[in-house]
Structure formats: C-alpha cells, structure tokens
Amino acid sequence: MGAENMNRNETMSKKVRNLLLAMLVQVPAVVLADPTGQALAFTCAGCHGTDGSSVGPSSPSIAAMDPEVFIDAMQAYKRDERNSTIMNRIAKGYRDEQIKGMAWYFAKQKMAPAPQAFDPKLAEAGAKLHEKYCEKCHEKGGRPGDAGTLAGQWMPYLNFTMEDFMSGHRDYPRKMKRKVDAAVEAGGDEALRALLHYYASKQ
C-alpha cells in the first residue's frame, strides 16, 4: 500500500514539483485571494448533490459537466437570458472567474448516473431515435460534453427542459429544433419520452 503510493509520488514530473514548490511559497496569498472553485462548488451540493451528482429528480446532475457548457449556462442565468426558477438569482452572486472555478471543479467530478426507473422497451426505441437525430451533437449517447449531459440525467429535469424548449420559454440551441421536430415526426408522440427513457437507461 505504502509502496504503491510512493510509486504515484515518483511519477510526479519535475514540472509538478516546481509548481508545488512555487505554490507552497505562495499559499497564503493565493488562498486568501478568493474562495476556491472547490469551496464555491461545495455550496451547490444542497440542490445538485454532493460534488454535483444529484439525487433529487428535478435538479440536474452537474458533475462531469462540460466546463464551458457550465459557464454558458451560468452566464445565461446571470444575464437573465435563460428561464429559471431560482438559478438566475443564484448565478448573479458569482463573478466570472468564480463561475469558471466552479465549472472546472464540477468538470473534474465523476457523475453518478441518476438512480431512476425506466422502461427498457421505450429506452430501446429512444436509442434508435438518439442515434439518428441526436448523436451528432450529443455524442456517445449523450454523455457529458459540449452539448450538455443527457445520459444518466434525471428524467423529470430533462422533461422540464424539453417543455421549456417546446413552449418557447427557452431558445433551442442552433439546429436543435429541426432535429427534435424530425425525431417527433419519426417517432410520434412517444418520441421524447422514448429518448428520456433511453438517457435514463444509461446507469
């Protein structure tokens, strides 16, 4: 055990060492400057779960979230450009670099997929729809990426999101409406549910 850990130490490059030494010298100044990204991110846990893996169906998991998508979302909330119930009020409390710090903290976390029930048959239908209409943007079955996180995300949350898109409360990202319309045309009324069950099935 000890030896194994020491091995990990030994893999530390010179660069890391130098960084570490530099940091050590600077610690008081750096730490006092601002709450760290981690400290800021900790305060989100009450709604988004510890380290961003939500266990509440209405609030999305933000662990492993693409940091730029996170920043985009927070900035949009901050500027009241994205409809929200509460996030717009919260986002206004953070400066740009603080948002960036949180973004990177969450990006580095492993996302625990939402533990939720799904209909395997619907999920199967959803998989096909996803492959055809969604995969190009929401790559790898909707895993966290530059188009957000779908795989393992809470269905109720995704449902709210789609409601917002379809009711016009939230602007579709570029080209998404076309694809959603096409998926609905191909998959009928069940299309969106099927997709959500597919994402829920990724556990």
């Binding site: 939500s54 509440g56 609030s59």
Partner: peptide, 23 residues
C-alpha cells in the same frame, strides 16, 4: 407552472440536502 415546478424543486432540494449532509 413555475410555482408548481418549485414544489418539485423543493423536494429535490430536500433529497439532495439530506444526501449531502449524511448520505
């Protein structure tokens, strides 16, 4: 609709808060 949504948020909030403190 938003008022209704906040009820579900409240419940999610509850689950996450409990989980964060002792889960």
């Amino acid at each position: 609709a938003q008022r209704k949504r906040e009820v579900t948020y409240a419940h999610s909030w509850f689950q996450n808060l409990i989980s964060d403190m002792m889960g």
